[in-house]
Design a protein around this nucleic acid. Sequence first.
DNA 1: GTGGTCTAGACCACG
DNA 2: GTGGTCTAGACCACG
Lengths: 131, 131, 131, 131
Amino acid sequence: MDLKLNPSSSVPIYAQVVSQVRALVASRALRAGDQLPSIRDLAASLRINRNTAAKAYEALESDGVIEMRQGHGCYVTGRGVTPWSKEERLRRLERAIDQALVEAYHLGVPFEEIPGLVRRRLERFKKEESA
Amino acid sequence: MDLKLNPSSSVPIYAQVVSQVRALVASRALRAGDQLPSIRDLAASLRINRNTAAKAYEALESDGVIEMRQGHGCYVTGRGVTPWSKEERLRRLERAIDQALVEAYHLGVPFEEIPGLVRRRLERFKKEESA
Amino acid sequence: MDLKLNPSSSVPIYAQVVSQVRALVASRALRAGDQLPSIRDLAASLRINRNTAAKAYEALESDGVIEMRQGHGCYVTGRGVTPWSKEERLRRLERAIDQALVEAYHLGVPFEEIPGLVRRRLERFKKEESA
Amino acid sequence: MDLKLNPSSSVPIYAQVVSQVRALVASRALRAGDQLPSIRDLAASLRINRNTAAKAYEALESDGVIEMRQGHGCYVTGRGVTPWSKEERLRRLERAIDQALVEAYHLGVPFEEIPGLVRRRLERFKKEESA
DNA sequence: GTGGTCTAGACCACG
DNA sequence: GTGGTCTAGACCACG
């Protein structure tokens, strides 16, 4: 699991780990049941403190992305036992989409180009998935 | 300018102001040349610290979203003053789109539904724009 | 003896075994003199580590819930072998009751509903007992 | 806010803080909007590490019992925006009640005494509430 | 070996 | 002043 950390980013290190693991799971590079490196190993390979690695894993666990088992290790959870209602889930997704649209506006990317771009990124995700 | 701030969110208040002003501009509720309230007035109306309001405006200015003219006030700038190259801008947008896709995966929303959703949000943006 | 263990719970497995055996005894599904599976058998049937099973039995024994007779096996003891004084016992029970009341408050269950609920659970216990 | 910690208990210090604050809120010794001591002050008064105090407050926040505000402090939340369904809430409460009943059995307290005891503890809660 | 807790202490971000 | 992050390092509980 090779994550790329930016220690000078304003995004905390543990949050960078969280979002990259979430992305790996979403792109199916990590799948349900897969074992993650232990907290110790992760900390060593990223050269961060054990507590920082533990904080990232804790956040991922309370997110429902991974499970940590006593004395065993950390495993990717099965997908989607999210405790949220259908409406709440839609609301959250719309918020993420709107953020991308706002970003597009301010970057000067015409709205007409968005659907094509989204389709391209989706294809890339699916390709990784079937790989 | 009525922004909805959540003081108990983990997102800093100044960042909430920034992202909501950016959204207002993107949805054309605020347009190039429009005047924003002064730092002092914004702080008063939102009942936030003046330093917080100032910090938000600074961030918006260095983002190229607003301009502060000494003794005149704050104005929404024209679009496309972003300091980034075409490639950098595409990279940033793809990152925002990917974040929405990762969110969709973890929320259990099937990828097939994404393009439709994006189109719907785009329509809403355009409607607000023409209003 | 079919116990339902949750390996991803934050409650240690041995403690899950202990509390479920205590519940079985309290509901009279297990009665004084009944023989429990050996440590080896329990570990095999629950597919847990033998040390874990042994630790659970040790805790149950020092609690006075079971007795382990060298070379004979494990047996449920008679009731009321608790080593505590009348006052201490009352204090412990009140603590358990208070915990339920605190839980009720935070779950938003009105206090008026508590006595009815307690009565219902008591009936269920007695029914299992007479079964 | 005087909490009594037992450093030699097997219950982690932060968890002791959590459960005692929950009890204070449930007994209305702390009410919605009340400010809690800052992490620094709590740590100093309990003579524990700031990180340990912070961990307790974080847990209380993710439980919905308190809110922490940037640069302001910690406040008791309004009651009961628990994200759980009515059924889940009942299930959790029943579990807590059952634990008290199991405890009663093993302590040799006759089931007949339970309803009276529960009523007494409820009265004590309500008295504190109106005080 | 694995995760969990705790401390001491530094530095930063926020308002 | 308040909370948030991070490190180094110790010791413990679990399986």
